[in-house]
């Protein structure tokens, strides 16, 4: 079971050579090798693939999936799942635009036709509100899962319909457009020559990686995933930890929605549909076990990058979209197969 680097450190009897071999055979390294091989092969097919411009653009495009995949890794490590992330994403996008356009602060009211509003909602407040609503949506998931003991898959399946429905109902399926210029900086602008959202990926990835592997909180998630009852008996506040990670998931969906609205400059109630499957595919490709207890942020990031680069590289090599998703499906199965095979062999030794 000792597959995370952290747990390796705890094994003092292991010789340095054994450690090195274990490190080389760890999930992340194997996945990294698979990724490098794939990217190397694709680079021979198009000279436009490994250019700075293209790589930065791809970084911009994968920001939303990467950000949502971080908390999804936490959740899957505890043996849970969150199918509602795409719906929360849509709800937050709608709430961002809707509150900005329709809420009046003085007098406090929801605007209607011909309504005279003295103080409009500042866009900054709408952004914060949208992210808060994401957190709330995640907390609702977490509360039902923890307190009422609804299995995560069922709970988030139900809220998938509920949150998407709320996005549709609140927006009345209308788009909100015409944001001020500064708003587009996050989604379409650059900071120090690099797309703004890539900085966010870096910051949140580092925070998540440290949180997961270097804190008691993070380690307790592995314990919950391996044996929830055991974790509870050893004094871990299982319920609280779970509430926190589902709320974290909602928050990241909200932030991702903010980035996305800023990138595409409009809101739609169907935004983010199908996002959950893309995210889950990246997380499991990154070596996180769907049964819980195993996984890492580095692995998830490798998973996200592999899928994005595969799609992009195949496209640049002249492969069309239908053939691309065939290859992505094959790679997903093959990577997990190879990885599992090597893990089992090294585990048996």
């Amino acid at each position: 079971m000792a597959q995370t680097p952290l747990m390796l450190d705890k094994n003092p009897e292991q010789s340095t050579g054994g450690r090195l071999r274990k490190l080389l055979l760890s999930q992340e390294v194997i996945l990294f090798i698979i990724m490098v091989v794939a990217i190397g092969l694709l680079a021979t097919r198009s000279d436009r693939f490994l250019t700075q411009d293209n790589l930065l653009t791809q970084g911009r495009l994968m920001a939303e999936i990467a950000l949502v995949a971080l908390p999804m890794t936490f959740i899957i490590i505890t043996g849970g799942i969150d199918l509602s992330v795409g719906a929360i994403f849509g709800l937050c996008a709608i709430m961002l635009g809707w509150t900005w356009e329709n809420i009046c602060l003085s007098p406090i009211a929801i605007k209607s036709r011909g309504f005279e509003c003295a103080v409009n909602m500042p866009l900054e407040v709408s952004i914060v509100l949208a992210i808060l609503i994401g957190i709330l949506a995640g907390l609702v998931n977490g509360w039902f899962i923890v307190k009422i003991k609804v299995p995560p898959l069922i709970m988030t399946l139900a809220t998938l319909a509920l949150y998407r429905g709320m996005a549709e109902g609140i927006s009345q399926s209308r788009s909100v457009r015409g944001y001020p210029d500064w708003f587009y900086q996050l989604g379409q602008g650059d900071l120090f020559g690099i797309p703004t959202q890539i900085w966010l990926i870096i910051v949140f990835s580092i925070i998540s990686a440290i949180w997961l592997s270097r804190t008691t909180f993070g380690r307790s998630l592995y314990a919950i995933g391996n044996n929830e009852t055991g974790a509870r008996f050893s004094g871990i506040a299982v319920g609280r930890q779970k509430m926190i990670i589902y709320a974290f998931s909602g928050m990241m969906a909200g932030i991702a929605a903010w980035i996305f609205v800023s990138r595409v400059s409009t809101t739609r109630s169907d935004m983010g549909s199908g996002l959950e499957l893309d995210v889950i595919a990246a997380v499991v490709l990154g070596g996180t076990s769907i049964f819980g207890g195993v996984g890492s942020i580095v692995g998830t990031l490798i998973g996200v990058v592999t899928i994005q680069m595969l799609k992009n590289g195949l496209s640049l090599a002249g492969v069309t979209g239908d053939a691309t998703i065939i290859v992505v499906g094959l790679v997903l199965i093959a990577a997990v197969l190879i990885n599992g095979f090597i893990q089992r062999r090294s585990g048996a030794r």
Partner: peptide
């Protein structure tokens, strides 16, 4: 081959 069913069927769906 011990591949989790969610991975097999997610991949297969795409293929």
């Amino acid at each position: 081959l011990r591949i989790p069913s969610i991975v097999v069927t997610l991949g297969l769906a795409s293929i």
